[in-house]
Amino acid sequence: MNETSKKTIIDVKGLNAFYGDRQILSDISLEIIENEIMVIMGHSGSGKSTLLRHVLGLNRPVSGSIKILDQEITTLDHYALYELRKKIGVAFQNGAMFSSMNLLENVELPLHEHTRLDKNTIRIMARLKLELMDLGDNESLMPSELSGGMLKRAGLARAVVMDPNILFFDEPSAGLDPVTSAELDDLILQLRDAMNMTIVVVTHELESAFKIADRITVIDKGKQIMTGNKEEIKDSDDPRIINMLQRRAANETINADDYLNKLTRN
């Protein structure tokens, strides 16, 4: 595959992010190209969800540039940002379904808000997406009546109902059994192939990452360790990546005195 001819969809350069005084991300640079599945991997607390929030424009970075479809989102006003977001779908970790609406109404909402289609057409389009996620029989259930896996799939249905160019998926497999999470992985691959989407997945699940990814970015403690395709990641000699691949806790050498001080501090 000749990758150089493909368009860059998301271009992150030198991103630094803070929560208060705490630096969460330092100098992240990332290019995501058309029609690829980019998996952002890292432990819990590594900053991967923060990276996602910044790319979505939910948080603004302290410094750095984030371009989506050639638009610099760090300086966009919120109307322009909303215009851009119509081309983006986001599936949140817990689905983030509106609890006052049933499943079908939840999925219909973006169409009601952004299109002038009539009610029947909207209903058909929403049902198509629910069928695709295998939720066709549950459309009249409320979010509180759904299981975790169903909520994730419902969130995915709502994220793709506008047929976005870019799809973000936060932790598709967190908290799911292996079979359900494998089904979600298949769904993600299908979406990329059938709907020509560029997909960014944030996960800490090795297995699912290696199943779906075209390229993988590994983040640890807010620093980007490497970005590459599956083989490059597997062949990496960085100890942190080797640890991650072998599911081994990092063996940091600790000074005995420091450790004692840490335990006895006030």
């Binding site: 939910l58 119509k86 983006i88 509106f98 709502r158």
Partner: peptide, 18 residues
């Protein structure tokens, strides 16, 4: 407040719904 905690408000923003 629950909509905020549950990311529902973020989801609204991401769906470009003000």
């Amino acid at each position: 407040g629950i909509m905020r905690v549950d990311n529902q408000i973020d989801a609204l923003e991401c769906m470009a719904i003000d």
